[in-house]
Write a protein that binds this DNA or RNA. Sequence first.
DNA 1: GTAGGATGCTAAC
DNA 2: TTAGCCTCCTACG
Length: 276
Amino acid sequence: MPEGHTIHRLAADHRDRFQGRKTTASSPQGKFSDSAALVTGRPLDTAEAHGKHLFLGFQDTGWIHIHLGLFGKVTLGGAPAPPPTDTVRLRLTNDTAYMDLRGPTTCALITDEGKQAIHARLGPDPLRPRGEGNDPETAWRRISRSRTTIAALLLDQKVVAGVGNVYRAEVLFRHGIDPYTPGKDLTYAQWTAIWADLVDLMREGVRHNRIDTVRPEHTPEAMGRPPRVDDHGGEVYVYRRARQACHICGGEIRTADLAARNLFWCPTCQPRGNRP
DNA sequence: GTAGGATGCTAAC
DNA sequence: TTAGCCTCCTACG
């Protein structure tokens, strides 16, 4: 399931399996058939991610722009590909590999200009190379003059690209910051620490293809507690742990609706007073 | 078998 | 602020 780390991992996986090789594209489900026909027979030049957007570049054809949304899923495997099911929006194959895309919000063939327009409306991405505006200062310019809560700002892709509901909850917990703190009340030091942490956490997420945020000293083993299993694959402090005990203080994790998303936090470890 | 959610986002009110 | 989109999985009868 897709936050930025998933998409950057997919870009790398596509480069490994498809780059420089003739690709066959099809749309068993039908909605991408015309564009698939244009791509078929072309080699993949490159694959790139910005936030939660994936771009697959095909020689002389353009870019397949993919956004997984909440449900979208990519399956990668070796040849021969199994018979596609009727929900497969896009299938890519070559001699040795296949990719199936299901349920995306977006799967469209776009031009260089179209791609530029998407980059232009996205904020800096902790997983992209630093420089040319892709840095914490660019985000800070918006955050530091916003009355919106830091929890909402972190999910705003124009402010930071790639952070989703899990990283939002976890990074705020790791820095002891009340999610309802207005952006303008955050200190620059707090923000640069959050950014640096996102860089580390999300790189780790790309490497392991899952979200782990619990520091070594807080693992169940280190705390002398029984092992735990979070049902979304990674080890986390607060995400989807409403009404359970905080791993650090033992208090109850809280949840609330914030801008139509589920927010999780520990009111003890992220106190309201913990503001400048 | 079916309802309801889920790591997302946008257009329209 | 809400409805709508897209799919899969779990919990509950």
